[in-house]
Design a protein around this nucleic acid. Structure first.
Lengths: 129, 129
DNA sequence: CTTTACACTCCACTTACTGGAGAGTTTATA
DNA sequence: TATAAACTCTCCAGTAAGTGGAGTGTAAAG
């Protein structure tokens, strides 16, 4: 598929997908005559994965590492599993933090209902968190 | 408190806190004679809030907006509530996505246990997600 | 009283994009 | 079949949000 479709299906911009191809994070085939990139379904899957991981601040390098786990036949499955479990526990920490952030904001929304809003409630809330 | 303590308590680096002060995201007092920044508890609370929000890719500008809700007495509480609720629904979407990412990785970890790892399971998993 | 830890400014560098110019390609429409 | 609209390409400059390091001043501990 062309870059436009790959971008749409992975929720990335065309610019970003092109950038990922430039740095070698994905390696689409290239039509020699037109110069157009040609993305396979696997390329798309990788883009979708990267898009998701990037939204949670996993760096490009970390994404690369995770992706390479599957292509590098020399790695032992122990290694694969270890890195994966490490990332999962990072995700668990993020989940807790994100729930916490949600809690703080919803506390704020509920305490700012009245028209005569008093002193800022969030700073107190935040201070003793 | 000094910048070092503020950084430690907000899980930011000294460099980053200094940067936030430079761009006016927080406004610590400044000791005229030494030039040292002096962070109040409120400054710290703001840093903690920003640290958390930034970890989930809320931009500096969004952080600024959220923080300003509390200091700007001219805003109506309706406005405060609307923006806050908007951010909460963004967080809900992120929560779903993050859980999904966790699921994908744990699926992978479980399917890479054996020593003779077969073809990559994640790409299949990702493709039909 | 001096070493160690911490603070400051300033400036260059990095990561991960983003925007725009200029030009070729493909598709839909007149 | 012509031509306009939509899509693609490269290249280059700019942005957001830091990060690293040099050179220097301040404070606390031994």
């Amino acid at each position: 598929m062309n870059i436009g479709k790959a971008a749409k299906l992975s929720n990335l911009t065309v610019k970003t997908v092109r950038y990922y191809a430039d740095i070698g994070l994905v390696k689409p085939l290239k039509n020699c005559s037109t110069g157009y990139r040609d993305f396979s379904d696997d390329d798309l899957a990788q883009l979708q994965f990267v898009a998701k991981a990037r939204r949670f601040n996993f760096s490009i390098q970390e994404c690369e590492e995770l992706l390479s786990l599957y292509s590098d036949k020399n790695r032992s499955s122990k290694e694969v599993k270890a890195l994966t479990l490490e990332k999962i526990s990072e995700i668990d920490a993020k989940l807790i933090e994100l729930k916490d952030l949600r809690h703080q904001l919803s506390f704020l929304a509920n305490n700012c209902q009245g028209n005569d809003r008093p002193e800022c409630p969030i700073l107190d809330e935040l201070s003793n968190a």
